[in-house]
Design a protein around this nucleic acid. Structure first.
Length: 423
RNA sequence: GGAGGGGUACCGAAGUGGUCGUAACGGGCCGCUCUCGAAAAGCGGUUGGGCUGUGAGGCUCACGUGAGUUCGAAUCUCACCCCCUCCGCCA
């Protein structure tokens, strides 16, 4: 959400943002609703003022044991008028708010303008692509031979695009989670949290998934709960409606959660195996920071996520998303794409975003400045550190041997009973 | 799920229709006085949003949330949310 005052005073910036993101939004409608709202509000407050004065007079009359009936009749007239204004104000505010929830964040100046993916900017590559003296298999073939992921039975249990991890596969999943959490808590200074996986509508609205993406979410209709599509939702909402002290910023959190996504309509070759599943594990990083620090914090968040891939020995590239690829709530976003040798593809395993004050406004998360004592919205950021499903693809495909076994990356061995191989 | 109690500022808590919401009282915190310094004591300050105004300021809203009754609601009515205690169920 953007500040209404900001929108009012910078309509050209909003128009540019909408155009660069290829979105449609009736800005004039918002501006005229806002104008009307303020006109009515001013009138209404004048009437309220009159009423307050008259009520005080009634109170005084009663104390003097005089009859206030005349005053009462007077107020009744004012009240009638005020009630009418109140009603129209309410309907205008409801409509205005509906529009405001669909105004996207303004992309940062460093974000390339244009259509995804051509306009995305590859910032850098890390690592050497693995070389094989045989044709590397895909994770689908490998996991079937090794009997570590059973997609068919997962379909029986739940449906298509689910995974059932077995034996060493399940252990690998658990090892990755523990490795990532340990790295971020011990080395990068994040506080680990374990959060609810069901959240209410307000939480989903605060981080920006609602109202726009409701159809992409799993929703429990009886209770109006949503299964989290990412830990970003519960973790960012930790401080909803709170005012933090500047001394306590920045705050870093990391959380492991499964992520639940409907991914409606996305079936086919590109979604085979672990590529696009309805439930996947992810270790998330979330930051609450001072506004002046947020772009530096984005860079360090990115480095924290990159280190996961570096320690796992997975070659990757850093991609700066263009205005059109940028999610609705973000002002700047880097994707990390790790290389998968069997598929010969770069797979998105992390998205690191600065949301500036966009989520903080929706969630009403503020901080008190130390010197001025003023209260302002803080900035929120988050990034995957990293998503597991596709990382597992990369590990299986890049670390495969000719005999079909998988070499376990060294950093994970301590989490897998010291073993160096799967299979 | 059932019964009862509760939700007021940073915390505790008073207020049950009319100068009581920059909200009694207690505590915390900040500043000042006193002191060599500290403690104690004393004095002062300490919620957030909106509209309007160049500004000082003016006005308005908010007692969990929303609606209602009333000239007037923290206070009365209704619905919902959350917390606590007990019972039931349960890993």
């Amino acid at each position: 959400m953007l500040d209404l005052k900001f929108i009012r005073e910078n309509p050209q910036k909003i128009l540019k943002a909408i155009k660069d993101r290829s979105l449609i939004l009736d800005l004039d409608k918002i501006l005229s609703l806002d104008e009307e709202r303020r006109k009515i509000l001013t009138k209404l407050e004048e009437l309220r003022h009159k009423k307050n004065i008259a009520n005080e007079e009634i109170s005084n009359l009663l104390k003097e044991r005089k009859n206030p009936q005349q005053k009462i009749d007077e107020i009744k007239e004012i009240s009638k008028e005020a009630d009418k204004l109140k009603e129209s104000l309410k309907s205008i505010e409801t409509e205005l708010n509906r529009f405001l929830l669909f105004v996207p964040n303004i992309p940062d100046e460093s974000v390339p303008v244009g259509k995804d993916p051509q306009a995305n900017k590859i910032m850098r590559y890390w690592g050497e692509l693995p070389k094989f003296d045989f044709t590397p298999l895909t994770h689908l073939e490998l996991s079937e031979h090794l009997d570590i992921i059973d997609f068919n039975r997962a379909s029986k249990i739940a449906g298509s695009n689910f995974a059932l991890f077995k034996g060493e596969g399940a252990k690998l999943e658990r090892a990755l989670i523990n490795f990532m959490l340990d790295l971020h808590t011990k080395k990068h200074g994040y506080t680990e949290v374990f959060v609810p996986h069901l959240v209410n509508r307000q939480s989903m609205t605060s981080t920006g998934q609602l109202p726009k993406l409701e159809l992409d979410m799993y929703r429990l209709h009886d209770d109006d709960y949503f299964l989290i599509p990412t830990a970003e939702v519960p973790v960012t909402n930790i401080y909803r409606n709170e005012i933090l002290d500047e001394e306590n910023l920045p705050k870093y959190f990391t959380a492991y959660t499964p992520c639940y996504r409907r991914e409606a309509g996305s079936y086919g070759k590109e979604t085979k195996g672990l590529m696009r599943v309805h439930q996947f594990d992810k270790v998330e990083l979330v930051k609450f920071v001072r506004p002046q620090d947020s772009y530096n914090e984005l860079e360090s968040l990115l480095r924290d996520a990159e280190e996961v891939l570096q320690l796992l020995g997975l070659p990757y590239r850093v991609v700066l998303l263009s205005t059109e690829g940028l999610s609705f709530a973000a002002s700047k976003c880097y994707d990390l794409e790790a290389y998968a040798a069997g598929m010969d593809k770069w797979l998105e395993v992390s998205s690191c975003s600065n949301f500036s004050d966009f989520q903080a406004r929706r969630a009403n998360i503020r901080y008190r400045e130390k010197d001025t004592k003023k209260i302002a919205y803080l900035h929120t950021l988050n990034g995957s550190g990293v998503a597991l499903a596709r990382t597992v693809i990369c590990i299986l495909e890049n670390y495969q041997e000719k005999d079909g076994t998988i070499t376990i990356p060294e950093v994970l061995r301590v989490y897998m009973e010291g073993k160096s191989k799967i299979g």
